[in-house]
Design a protein around this nucleic acid. Sequence first.
DNA 1: ATCATCAATGTAATAACATCACATCGACCT
DNA 2: AGGTCGATGTGATGTTATTACATTGATGAT
Lengths: 132, 132
Amino acid sequence: MVHAQELTKNQSLVLDVLSHTEGPLSAYSLLDQLRDKGFRAPLQVYRALDKLMEFGLVHRLESINSFVACTHSHDHKHGVIAFGICDTCGRVDEFCDAVVEERLKGWSKDHAFRLSKTTIEMRGTCANCLAA
Amino acid sequence: MVHAQELTKNQSLVLDVLSHTEGPLSAYSLLDQLRDKGFRAPLQVYRALDKLMEFGLVHRLESINSFVACTHSHDHKHGVIAFGICDTCGRVDEFCDAVVEERLKGWSKDHAFRLSKTTIEMRGTCANCLAA
DNA sequence: ATCATCAATGTAATAACATCACATCGACCT
DNA sequence: AGGTCGATGTGATGTTATTACATTGATGAT
């Protein structure tokens, strides 16, 4: 696994902002927050994000075109990740479910489909927002 | 359930193109294919797609910003749908898995999360493309 | 030392995806 | 006729992502 000190300057800056933010951010929000650190162009953000995702430190939320810092410990490799995304407050919960993973891998096997990436995103309203 | 004759002109045109196409199309591909039917602006496509998705006749593939006609029979309501998307040929397989659905609904219940929409997309390479 | 290489970076331009704002039309109802 | 409502037409704009090309900086080989 990659450690923080192995990240480049831009990667560290992007991860820093994501880690200190509750909820997901779009690439352009990240860019705005990093302008005073010298960021000028979207590509600087996208390149950093690509590497961070490769390292497993950041996840992309496909259904909202945004990015979050991974909340799992980085000591072990994890499998398929599912997200619960609150459409009201933006909160994101990340979890793994071995049964779900097994079922999806089962389908892949049955259909001779070589799986490279799985996206599971649940949109809705979180407990806090329901209570409010 | 909505029947074909209840669709508006634009909705029918969009569904027609999607139904006669193998694989997903982007909104702008649809627009291009519908220019000679009088389509001029993206909004005409997006509006039709919104309705068709509401009717359950079309699905949006979040991870590739594209749309496919639903391949299920329309006689019954189906639950959570998962997609297998071949990154090589674009082929899309649509399926339901009751166990997966149950697990995800279980998580939602446990976390008092009111689920409104679930996205499951598996990216990879299909059997045909692996054989080639 | 100097040269080759390769990853990371900087920058501008452009492509791809999606929505807003506002006007119009047509069906239906009263 | 007048009112309402969903669908439509149209231009402008907003948002997300990539292409293309130049530069920098570290590493290793000759």
